[in-house]
């Protein structure tokens, strides 16, 4: 099976004197569903940041979607990010854009035609049950609704990889269930690789997944 992520002897740090992830080695198969857990401050979000190139490896090698991220150029990083969908705990929606335009963002960056873009956005708005809110601005929506918008945005351009950082951290049950269903759906139907960083794996989730746990700067496979 193809590997979508290969980390070899990978160390991550924000400063030279404090290493967060220390010389880890792991790989993730294409099309798999992965949970990364760990205590607060263990380095799970740091690891996720490194996977979309927001943090350069301090040491070792990290290859995502065939792109080596150590010392990656801006052009290569942009190319990789065009094929990744990211969901953040704090949503990261553009406040001055309507939710429709927020969902459209990856499609516009990838140069999709206007007609295709509109159809895709309409379909996603239906999936996240926000069709009636299309013209609203993010701050006019609840936290759960904003996260559903962020989820729709992450799925809009059919990415090869979805990275989600505590996607249901502060959500109501209804929105949380919807988010999990969308993530599982993308994985099962579109064969999208999904990596979720979370404190707890939901007991009700119905998907075959791999579980990694981060502790003391090391990453260990749990099952």
């Amino acid at each position: 099976m193809d590997k979508v992520i290969i980390a070899d002897n990978l160390s991550l740090a924000y400063s030279d004197d404090e290493t967060i992830i220390n010389k880890v080695k792991f790989s993730i198969d294409s099309g798999s569903f992965v949970f990364i857990t760990g205590a607060s401050g263990s380095g799970k979000s740091t690891l996720l940041k490194s996977l979309y190139g927001a943090l350069n490896p301090q040491e070792g090698s990290l290859v995502v979607g065939g792109v080596e991220l150590k010392g990656v150029s801006n052009a290569k990083l942009n190319f990789l990010r065009k094929h990744i969908g990211i969901v953040f705990q704090d949503y990261k929606l553009v406040k001055e854009w309507t939710i429709e335009k927020n969902i459209m963002l990856p499609l516009l960056i990838n140069g999709y035609e206007k007609g295709v873009t509109q159809n895709q956005v309409d379909s996603l708005l239906k999936h996240v049950r926000l069709k009636h809110q299309a013209g609203k601005y993010p701050q006019e929506l609840s936290g759960g609704e904003q996260q559903r918008v962020a989820m729709a945005r992450a799925l809009s351009h059919n990415p090869i990889l979805i990275l989600a950082d505590e996607p249901t951290g502060n959500l109501d049950d209804y929105s949380a269930e919807l988010i999990w269903n969308l993530l599982v759906g993308a994985n099962e139907q579109l064969k999208t690789t999904v990596i979720v960083v979370t404190h707890h794996i939901p007991e009700t989730i119905k998907v075959d997944y791999k579980h990694y746990h981060i502790e003391f700067g090391r990453i260990n496979e749990v099952n």
């Binding site: 990010r81 990211i86 990261k92 963002l105 990856p106």
Partner: peptide
Amino acid sequence: NIMGLFGAPL
């Protein structure tokens, strides 16, 4: 920053 996260060039 948000646009950059989805690969928008400068």
